[in-house]
């Protein structure tokens, strides 16, 4: 300690600042609840998630948290050689992180779905598209919820 020129007071001040920082930061750093992370791992394994190709449409603020419209489209030619195999929708803030998983074939024509979902509170919704070559693309969107609908 003495060698690097820090007094006890400096160290304590730094520790204090650190405590303040960690008190604020966890909510940002761990915004992705563990349950959503665990489910994501189950669904896509340890695949590196790339950005792009997935368009996730949600209102900025929920109109009807019990049945809020959501649509997800993945850019893909949907041929036998190059198509979207699966599309997983994951909730970071609902009691159960699973929303729905869609499994496409070239006969699906396009990898796009629309449906309605429940939202317990303001949260981030994630979408992961698994391509036929194993690549995974993802998108996230926050939706504000004033009255939960779970």
């Amino acid at each position: 300690m003495k060698d690097n020129g820090l007094s006890r007071r400096d160290v304590l001040a730094a520790a204090g600042a650190g405590m303040v920082a960690t008190a604020i930061l966890p909510s940002l750093a761990q915004a992705a609840p563990q349950d959503a992370d665990e489910l994501t791992k189950k669904l896509i394994g340890n695949a590196a998630v790339k950005e792009g190709r997935v368009t996730l449409k949600l209102a900025e603020a929920a109109d009807s948290a019990g049945a809020e419209p959501i649509s997800v489209a993945v850019d893909s030619p949907m041929t036998a050689a190059d198509h979207v195999k699966a599309l997983h929708i994951v909730s970071e803030g609902n009691p159960n992180p699973g929303v729905s998983s869609w499994f496409f074939t070239p006969r699906s024509g396009k990898a796009e779905v629309a449906f309605r979902m429940r939202l317990g509170k303001t949260q981030i919704i994630r979408a992961y598209a698994v391509m036929s070559d194993g690549q995974v693309f993802g998108a996230k969107r926050e939706i504000k919820v004033t009255i939960g609908g779970c």
């Binding site: 699973g98 729905s100 869609w102 499994f103 074939t105 779905v113 309605r116």
Partner: peptide, 25 residues
């Protein structure tokens, strides 16, 4: 022949309403 399938969880709304696509084969 299966075109599209899905697994649903409790976060799907009551009276599920879905839009899907298919190639007219």
């Amino acid at each position: 022949e299966t075109v599209t399938s899905a697994d649903w969880y409790p976060s799907m709304s009551k009276d599920p309403f879905v839009t899907l696509y298919a190639v007219a084969s």
